[in-house]
Amino acid sequence: MKFVIYWKTALLGFRQVANYRTEVWFQIIQRLLVLGGIVLLWSVIGKSYDTGMSFSQLISYFLIANGVRELTDGQYGKFGSKTIDDIKSGAVSSVLLQPTNTVLFLFFKNLGTRGVSIIFSIINIIIGFALIPRVSILIYLFFLISIITATIISYAQSTMVGSVAFWITEGKGIKNVVNHVTRIFSGALIPLTFFPDSYQKFVILNPFASYGFLPATITQSQTVSLSILTQVLFSIFWAGLFLNLSNIMWKRGIKHYEAIGY
């Protein structure tokens, strides 16, 4: 019964956004441009350097990495941004009074408004899969696990970023800082294997690698290697840690919350 409420909230958000059809098209073109920019850069780099991947593999890597990053909201962290707005404006007060989990409710509310991005990202991922040789069921399973952990990490990251608004009203700067860091360390702009060998292993195991590098690398592999298994285990570890930290931060933050007129 409770989940139906969250689901309906998401659907309502999607319907609201879908009403502005022209805007939906602009949004799709914008996403295509972001992806096009990365493909253009790497096609130029590919002319003077052997990336170790064929052109279709390279395109597939970036389609999947950016697709997953978009799907899980790791790209723009819109959930965090919206939470900051809701806390700043006091709109979160009405959600706090509801018999629902506040963070989950806000998450699903935001999820619906990202409907177009989600559909677009799924199309990217499907095209990315079509460009590489057929992979085994086990690879699909690991890919699915990486998507789940990436979603949890993104959800927790946005909750923590949003919670900052309980202490400082202008938290958008922090949100942008996190987005800039994740852009590089997710591997969505540059494969993490490009990092110097001396610290590449540590970079590959960073929590944001789950947004792009990990799922994209899984799909490029024909078998589940020890390296992939380690990365997936680390991803599960980060998801658990981030989720707990975000819960603590939200609970502490809410004690600081004051609102007038509700």
Partner: peptide, 22 residues
């Protein structure tokens, strides 16, 4: 004409900064 212009603006910004690493 559409009453909303946020995504149009974002798209325009993305166009003008398209390929700014190239």
């Amino acid at each position: 004409f559409t009453g909303e212009g946020k995504n149009a603006r974002n798209m325009a910004m993305e166009i003008i900064s398209f390929g700014d690493s190239v």
